[in-house]
Design a protein around this nucleic acid. Structure first.
Length: 578
RNA sequence: GGGCGCGUAGCUCAGGGGUAGAGCAUCUGCCUUUUAAGCAGAGGGUCGGUGGUUCGAGCCCACCCGCGCUCACCA
């Protein structure tokens, strides 16, 4: 992966590389937030692996003001908190946490473990309340003019002379996002709580004077970013494309970092969004997948592979379609199989595989995802047994665990994401598309139905019967299977036909398979050989033939010949000549 | 309007100076059980456009066209 190799060349000269990322806990984090988590985790693991001293920290920006209503919550209940620090907003009813910030971030932090991301968590409220950022606040307020100049120069944003780069929590209404510091005497800040400060919250109009230290005040996002870099010694931090635009927050933070704090900004890794079906997923609107949804769906190594195999700058276009999901699993499996078979992996393959497969070095066999999807849709099937049957051996514990995770993924996909067409569904009525079956296929269905009347109804017997009936028709087995899937599922392909038939009512099969309109003379025209072709076939197979019986018919005044041929392998072939 | 990304085979995409690639789809041949993906082979692309740099350009540069995301309040 060139982006990691490139990164190594850009590293700061520091004793310890500090990788940082953060999330404002204003709602259920959407899946895109995982991209940042995994990119930073990959950087951390990559550098550690190179023997470079590195630590990975992840912050909850829980002193940020609440700038939108939490999903699913009513305005009347939360309106009054808009603009207050998230750590001061009560959690929704029924939550095990006291405040809104912890309510949202704690589950997100649990995800780290589940996807194999390692980070030390920190909470901005602690840093503010403990006075950790007092010095930064003091510096910024004292040098407000320079900060205003940076805003103007970098992002063409006019900040009036009575604007200072910090905000305090209003003593009267508890809001932070609405206050403007209008004067600073080196110890105390004079502020106004304005109703026109921001569009998303209204202040109470209070005017006061207080110390901005020890949690009374907070830095606005862009300058806070720079202060974090400086005071947490951050050397690497990526951010989404929304921050990485000219004049955007990253540019402002860069300038503040250099000019005010005299600190070289961390190495940047701009990364693109995570798009669902071409559209951006939005957590605030409750549309699309949350990080939790995605973690519940995909096994960790697949999710990691998805996030890390795409160049950071490029958007990830996630589609919940069967094709996309299957390809995702198969792409990963290709690497995995190379690995367990001992095939030499090229550097980038090795890198992405190691970064994806973080939980186990064991050489376990993976089971094809599409096979699992098929199997779990058939009733009464024990997947473990099926897979063991296929492998012809018992599954190891690692394999069982992996299989279980994939079964869960398949179930999740079927339940939440699969379209109707992608689900296997037994057709209650003969599908219209069955009209497109050839007469040979229709004949096959009738022959098959007749053939299975007297066999023992096991999966294997039915499966064998498909091939037996194919020879008796005769028809290319592929077309035979297509006919079966068409009349049962209205699809061209499906799960193993023998299994499918074994679990379906016999009368239904008889009725359905005999239902399509059969035209015997057309069937003969389609399927019969010329005398020459037949003789050629006889010649080629003469050694194997044990017995043959010919029957002559007249159909629509045409005389035809049906030859039943027994071979030395007990198989019976039917040939038609007209 | 600015920034970033994308445009390569019918479809999904990889490749970032040295003879245009993969998977799926299509076609051909083979197969007595691959059945969502059996084996072998084939066809299929003026790499969005126009210029430029170079012995040589999908690749680098400039401009243009189309699509997507994003920013200009806040985070």
């Amino acid at each position: 992966m060139s982006w990691l190799d490139d990164l190594e060349k850009k590293l700061h000269d520091a004793d310890v590389q500090v990788v940082n990322d953060a999330k404002s806990p204003s709602g259920k984090p959407h899946v895109g937030a995982l991209r940042g988590v995994l990119i930073h985790d990959a950087v951390y693991k990559f550098l550690k692996d190179k023997g470079i001293k590195v630590k990975n920290i992840y912050g909850s920006d829980d002193y940020d003001p609440m700038d939108e209503l939490p999903g699913g919550e009513t305005a009347e209940k939360y309106d009054k908190y808009l603009g207050a620090p998230l750590s001061n907003v009560p959690a929704p009813k029924g939550s095990e946490h006291k405040d809104l910030a912890m309510h949202y971030i704690s589950d997100f932090f649990k995800i780290f473990d589940e996807i194999g991301a390692e980070a030390e968590f920190y909470y901005m409220r602690d840093y503010y309340k403990s006075g950790f950022f007092n010095e930064a606040i003091d510096t910024l307020l004292s040098r407000a003019a320079e900060v205003r100049e940076i805003y103007k120069r970098v992002s063409n944003s006019d900040r009036p002379n009575d604007w200072f780069p910090a905000q305090v929590v209003c003593e009267k209404c508890g809001k932070l996002g609405t206050t403007q510091i209008i004067d600073w005497d080196g110890k105390e800040a004079t502020y106004v709580c304005r109703d026109d400060m921001v569009t998303w919250a209204k202040g109470c109009g209070h005017k006061g004077k207080m110390s901005p230290f020890n949690g009374n005040g907070k830095l606005p996002y862009k300058v806070e970013w720079a202060a974090k870099w400086k005071y947490l010694n951050i050397t690497i931090e990526g951010a989404g494309t929304d921050h990485n635009t000219r004049g955007g927050s990253r540019d402002v933070a860069d300038a503040v970092s250099r000019k005010i704090f005299n600190y070289n900004p961390p190495v940047n890794i701009p990364y693109g969004f995570f798009l669902l079906g071409g559209a951006k997923m939005s957590s605030s609107k409750g549309i699309g997948a949350t990080a939790r949804d995605m973690t519940n769906f995909l096994p960790a190594e697949i999710l990691r592979y998805l996030m890390l195999n795409t160049q950071p700058k490029r958007a990830i276009n996630f589609e919940p379609s069967q094709m996309f999901i299957t390809k995702l699993f198969n792409d990963y499996d290709k690497l995995h199989n190379k690995f367990i078979q001992g095939t030499e992996l090229v550097d980038y393959e090795k890198q992405i595989y190691t970064l994806s497969n973080v939980f186990s070095d064991e050489k376990y066999e993976v089971v094809d995802f599409s096979l699992i999807v098929t199997l779990i849709q058939l009733p009464h099937i024990n997947i473990n047994e099926k897979v063991e049957e296929r492998l012809n051996r018992k599954l190891t514990n690692a394999e069982k665990k992996n299989l279980e995770r994939r079964v869960n993924a398949a179930k999740y996909w079927l339940k939440n994401l699969a379209s109707e067409e992608e689900r296997i569904q037994l057709q209650e009525k003969m599908p219209l598309e069955a009209n497109e079956l050839s007469q040979t296929q229709i004949a096959f269905l009738r022959i098959f139905a007749e053939h299975i009347k007297n066999i023992k109804p096991t999966e294997d017997n039915f499966q064998t019967a498909v091939f037996d009936a194919s020879r008796l028709t005769p028809i290319n087995p592929k077309l035979a299977f297509e006919a079966i899937y068409r009349v049962m599922l209205n699809k061209q392909q499906g799960p193993k036909a023998g299994s499918l038939i074994a679990y379906i009512d016999k009368d239904f099969i008889q009725k359905r398979f005999n239902e399509p309109a059969f035209n015997e003379i057309e069937f003969w025209k389609e399927s019969s050989l010329t005398e020459n072709e037949y003789n050629l076939w006889l010649k080629e197979n003469s050694e194997k033939i044990i017995e043959k019986t010919e029957k002559n018919y007249t159909i629509d005044n045409v005389s035809v010949k049906e030859i039943s041929v027994s071979m030395n392998d007990n198989k019976i072939y039917v040939k038609r000549v007209m």
